[in-house]
Design a protein around this nucleic acid. Structure first.
Lengths: 335, 335
DNA sequence: TTGAAAGCGCTAACAC
DNA sequence: GTGTTAGCGCTTTCAA
């Protein structure tokens, strides 16, 4: 039931605990003979070091906490996978924590802001309050943002402005002029702070080509397929409806597809639709979309955090990941 | 930078560390006056207890490890979410660990089999070797299985035999007689140990209705949409092809749908298709399927483990969760 | 009701 | 190269 301790190993190998510790932490000041003895004793007794003791002594937790929205969003899961991959070769444990509201997020982050819980913190797809940023800074607890932005923090973000522009340009180049834009509420306290950037890209692309932005073609609402369907319906029932719709997420693009079917519109003949995220379903549905390097964002974020912890690097870095257009079957020339 | 310790709180409150500890662990043998003093001091200093020290002293890790296949499968994510929910109100940290092969799984589980890593272990959607079961038992480390089976362990499983039977019965009741069955390899070392049960259910349903099982209508292969498509094609090219196909997972059912489209078959007119799992895509594709309580399996597993840890309960329990038929558009009467 | 002190298992000076 | 020992921050006897 109870575990073997270092002391027992020491006794068995007829050395001191210090020597056992040295062998296990691969200090070079040990004869290969004693090393063998110790290793043999460890194996015989089935010794495994007590992590709590080690961590207490070292003043480290060897733990990294990741705070994120619930795992219902496939994009979050994908980023988390990247983080896991980054930490797997290290000796750090990863504890993911999902929060459902910005209050949860803040109170949880506040509880993390002491050195005994974690050696570093990752915040995924959520904004962070200025107060908390300062708190972490003053404690010296490393904090890295993934898919979220703050000038004082190391962060991994995709160029959502470029992505929004890319999607819109694609439609413009196809010959579309009346281009609708559907998104979440542009200012969302919990996540999707990047929605606004996608919208900016949309505006920029229009501007570049001298197409005037028409506010009637822009809708925002709660995230979700159903909500997007309704917004799309409003757009399609306009006197002069858009010939193409850029939905700021694939889930919403699917809602747009629903709406088109409801109105008997053929895709892409009567209506072109482009999404954003390239979730799995986009493939099944043959949806043209913008691909985000989700997994990679997690990977890079995890690696960056590890580096900060180990090198004590202080200078905040911005890692900007590129997006790309995934051309599939829901976009084409207007009739 | 460094955290406030109990000693500092004690000095500030002019009491001993023992008293501080008592207050914080809500021992009743403290005057409300000293209690107030201590609490005030804690707040002033922004004290948070050092978890490593507490855990070392208590001989507990307050940590639960969950071992599972990679999070690429939506069903795994959903179960994990349930586990998270179960542990959220407790003081246990959850460390999920994804493994990619049965070797990884075994070596990782072996590394867990000492009391200093975790107070309890959850294994999700993976079989576990007899040796490891005995190892955990001998150490007295609580182990709970989710979507996996072993008579000596507490486990949360769904009634896959009933599920397989339910799916097949649905097709039979619709009037189908030539019913194909497509699945993973029925004996898979890493996961999906439940595939076999679904097949058993299929056999049982046929038997009940006096339909003879025809081995030509059964195909097994690697998991995946593409592989399933090929298997379905083989079935459809038979001299007397099935009028309905039961795919043991939704992913595979989608492959069957691909094959039907390729052969110009209308669904459900020419071919009925039923899946299993009720993943998100099933909804988009209007796929009739069998719903598994994924989230709930995680929830119950987590709760069961917590209970074992806290009450030292030893008797293994089997929690059998029910499945249900989700009737959508891909099944109908044969022509 | 409170305080003093031992000790959880480990690492890292410091001595030899 | 190896051993002795202090102490990481906490809980919990045992005395007072």
């Amino acid at each position: 039931m109870s575990s073997v301790t270092m002391k027992e190993v020491a006794e068995r190998a007829k050395v001191s605990v210090a020597t056992v510790s040295r062998v296990l932490n691969s200090s070079d000041k040990v004869t290969s003979k004693t090393q063998e003895k110790v290793l043999a004793a460890c194996k015989q007794l089935g010794y495994t070091p007590n992590l709590q003791a080690k961590r207490l002594k070292l003043g480290k937790t060897q733990t990294i906490m990741a705070v994120m929205p619930f795992l219902t969003l496939p994009s979050i899961v994908e980023r988390l996978r990247g983080v896991q991959q980054a930490l797997a070769p290290s000796e750090y444990d990863l504890i993911p924590f999902s929060v459902g509201s910005s209050e949860d997020r803040d109170s949880y982050l506040a509880s993390l802001a002491n050195r005994s819980r974690a050696d570093g913190v990752l915040v995924i797809s959520m904004p962070i309050t200025e107060k908390l940023v300062q708190r972490f800074k003053s404690i010296g607890l490393p904090l890295v943002l993934i898919d979220s932005n703050h000038p004082d923090l190391t962060r991994v973000i995709v160029n959502d402005i470029a992505g929004g522009k890319m999607a819109t340009n694609h439609l413009i180049e196809l010959g579309h002029v009346r281009i609708g834009f559907i998104s979440d509420h542009l200012e969302n306290p919990l996540h999707f702070c990047s929605m606004l950037d996608r919208f900016k890209g949309y505006r920029l692309a229009l501007e570049d080509k001298g197409i005037e932005f028409d506010p009637r073609y822009q809708k925002q609402g709660h995230h979700g397929r159903e909500e997007a369907r309704k917004m799309a319906l409003e757009l399609l029932d306009l006197p002069s409806p858009p010939t193409a719709i850029f939905a700021a997420s694939d889930t919403q693009a699917i809602g747009v597809l629903d709406a088109a079917r409801e109105r008997g519109l053929s895709i892409p003949g009567d209506l072109s639709v482009i999404g954003y995220d390239n979730i799995r379903d986009a493939d099944y549905l043959n949806l043209t979309t913008i691909n985000q390097p989700l997994f990679e964002s997690g990977l890079e974020g995890g690696q960056a955090l590890l580096e900060i912890i180990e090198t004590d690097e202080q200078e905040p870095q911005e890692k900007l990941l590129p997006v790309s257009l995934i051309l599939r079957g829901t976009t084409g020339e207007p009739k």
